[in-house]
């Protein structure tokens, strides 16, 4: 790591001011940031430590309407174990948190750090390569290079994958986030945290320099909702997903009444699939139906030279997710 000045803010406004300075980087637990700094693909002159605000920003609160408010510095371990997430409606979030990385990582990694971790593309993550997304080269090297873990849909000029487990789960639950920029607070849909068109030259999130996410909101879910998260990966532990799916469904009188479906790890942003989810509405759960939905979810897939498998495996993961909810 290159040397840096380490800033320990005593309040959110102080953190926001410090983070807005040129060359400053926000840090939560630092598991993603320190990795990038060790690789020297990130060399901030100042690091602003959000952990100094742990007392203020680490909590899971049940709201009066039975939604959840989750502090930005809440750890994945807290998400996995907190009783407030025990209900079937929040299953997707609990499962996504519990399947992330390792217990050692989950004991420190924060919910917002997970959402804002940078893509695992090995070209971007290595100082030995210069690519378009890293603004150090003329093209996406994975597009024509080693791309077995890269995108199969939703890409333009860069085929990186959004690596977060929690993103599809939270999107399936219609989550929102509150952020602080200077002394201004705003609350937006979580989908707005990610760029609409994931171009190479855009950042992987839409936050402005110095903008701090303070909380994630999981609104009250529809009555009798259940949700689940499933993924495929090469190892049982440690590994990022090769494909992921989160869904939330309400079944009443044997028929599916509402449904959300979000894919993860297959595109530069988490991919909500409203058209595929619509096929579920009014139908009785069945494997035939789930196959149809899985096919629809991957209809727009244009796999790369080495990741055709993701389409087949991803469809199986969609089916498994839907079965897990309606079982």
């Amino acid at each position: 790591m290159k040397p840096f000045t380490y800033i320990l803010p005593r309040s959110l406004p102080e953190a926001a001011t410090a983070a807005a300075r040129k060359g400053a980087q926000l840090k939560a637990a630092g598991i993603d940031l320190i990795d990038r700094m060790k690789e020297r693909i990130e060399t901030p002159s100042e690091v602003v430590n959000l952990l100094s605000l742990k007392g203020e920003l680490s909590y899971i609160k049940s709201e009066r309407d039975s939604g959840l408010r989750i502090g930005a510095l809440t750890t994945l371990n807290d998400l996995e174990l907190d009783a407030a997430l025990g209900a079937a409606q929040f299953g997707a979030l609990r499962e996504a948190a519990g399947r992330t990385a390792t217990p050692l990582v989950r004991n420190r990694a924060t919910i917002v750090g997970n959402l804002l971790q940078v893509t695992r593309c090995w070209y971007l993550r290595s100082a030995a390569f210069g690519c378009l997304h890293g603004k150090k080269g003329p093209a996406c090297l994975a597009m024509t290079g080693e791309n077995r873990y890269h995108s199969v849909m939703g890409y333009f000029d860069c085929v990186r994958v959004h690596p977060s487990n929690l993103a599809p789960a939270l999107l399936a639950l219609d989550a929102e986030f509150t952020s602080q920029l200077g002394d201004r607070q705003s609350r937006r849909k979580l989908s707005e945290l990610f760029p609409k068109e994931a171009r190479a030259m855009l950042a992987e999130h839409t936050l402005l320099p110095g903008e701090i996410v303070t909380a994630i909101h999981v609104p009250a879910q529809p009555a009798n909702a259940r949700s689940a998260y499933r993924e495929s990966r090469e190892k049982l532990s440690f590994d990022w997903a090769t494909t992921a799916c989160a869904a939330r469904i309400v079944v009443e009188g044997g028929k599916i009444r509402t449904a959300t479906l979000v894919l993860g790890a297959v595109a530069p942003v988490p991919m909500p699939m409203p058209e595929a989810a619509k096929l579920l509405i009014g139908e009785a759960p069945s494997d035939e139906l789930f196959q149809k939905v899985a096919n629809a979810a991957y209809q727009s897939a244009v796999p790369l030279s080495q990741n055709v498998y993701k389409v087949q495996v991803g469809k199986a993961v969609v089916r498994e997710t839907l079965h897990a909810i309606t079982r």
């Binding site: 380490y6 637990a29 630092g30 598991i31 320190i34 990795d35 430590n49 952990l51 371990n77 990385a101 390792t102 217990p103 050692l104 990582v105 004991n107 420190r108 440690f238």
Partner: peptide, 24 residues
């Protein structure tokens, strides 16, 4: 953070000490 060889406890939680700053 990818092997566990550096595991220590911090406030009772097992963590990867290689991915944590000493100042933290």
């Amino acid at each position: 953070g990818a092997c566990g060889g550096c595991t220590v406890h911090v406030d009772g939680h097992a963590v990867n000490s290689c991915m944590m700053l000493a100042i933290d």
